[in-house]
Amino acid sequence: MLRYILKRVLWVIPVMLGVVIIVFTITYLTPGDPVMTILGSGYTPERYAAKAAELGLDKGYFGQLVAYIWNIITRLDFGKSYNSNIPIVQEFAARYPISVSIGLLSCMLIAIIGLPLGILSAVKQYSVLDYSLTTLALIFAAIPSFVLSILGLVIFGVKLGWLPVSGLDSFKSWILPVLANTLPGVAGIMRMTRTTMLEVIRQDYIRTARSKGLKESVILRKHALKNCLIPLVTIFGGMIAHTTAGSIIVENIFNIRGMGTYLYSAILARDYPVINGCVLLIAFVVCVMNLLVDITYAFIDPRIRSQYEKKRVTRKKITTTKAEVA
C-alpha cells in the first residue's frame, strides 16, 4: 500500500512538469516586454539589461524554462504579475486561504446536507418527500450559481438588508457566497447519492443483511453507506479540487479577494505570469485531490486495495487453496 501511494505521489511530478512546460511555452510565445513594464519611468539601457538579467530573460527558451521551474521548486517563486508587479506567491498567500475556506466550507455543507437528503430520498423512494427533494434538487441544479447569487443578494442583501452585499468582513458575509457555492453542489450530490443509494439497496448483499434480521438503520449505516460512498468519493474529490481553486463567478459577484477574482482579472488583463501561476496551482490541487481520491478508494474498497497488493494476494491465495485441498 505504501509503495502504491509513493508511486502515485511520484507520478504527480511528470504531470506537473508537463503542465509547467505547456504553460511556460505559451507565455514565452506571447508578445510583450515585461522588463519595460516593470521599469516604467526608470528606464535606461543599463537598467534594462540588469533587470533582464535579474529576471533571467536574457537566457534562451530552455534557460528560462529551467529557471522558471527552479524558482518555483526552490523558492516557490512564480514570478511577478505584469499588471501589479506584486509577487504572485504573495497574492496566493493572501487569496488562496480565502478560496480554500469558502471551498471547504461549501464542500462540508454539501456533504452534510446532500448525503443525508440523497439517502433519505432513496430510502423513501416514490414518497412525497422523495418527489419534493428530487424536484428541489432539479431546480437548484438547473439554476446557475450566479443567478442564485444575485437572487440572494437582491433579496437578503438589498431588500431585506439582513446580509452584507460584498466582502468577507463578518461572519454574516460568509453566508451568501458559501450558500451560492453550496446549493447547486448539494443538488448534484443529492441526486448522485440517491441514484447510487438506490442501486446499492437493490443489491443482493443488502437482502442478505435483511435476512439476517438487521435493523434498516444498521443496514443503511453499515452495509449500504460505505458501498454508496465509492462513486461519490470521485465526485467529491473533483468538487473539492475545483471549489477550493475559487469560484470565478461567485467570487466576482460577492467581490471576494480570492483565487477566482485573481484569475479572472488576470485573464482579462492578459497577465500571463498570474494565469500561469493559477493554472499551475489548480493543476497541482487537482493532482493532489486525484491522488487522495485514489487512496481513499483503496481504504474504502478492499477489492481495489487488493489490486495494489496483487502479488501478495495471489501468493496467499495459492497457499490457502492448497491447504484447503489438503
Binding site: I150, L153, G157, P164, V165, N252, I253, F254, N255, Y264
Partner: peptide, 18 residues
C-alpha cells in the same frame, strides 16, 4: 475607493448604502 469586479454587486452596494 473600492474595486468591484462585478458591476451589479457595486450597484447593490450603492443601493444598500455601503
Amino acid at each position: 475607493i473600492k474595486a468591484y469586479s462585478d458591476m451589479s454587486t457595486m450597484y447593490m452596494e450603492l443601493e444598500s448604502g455601503n
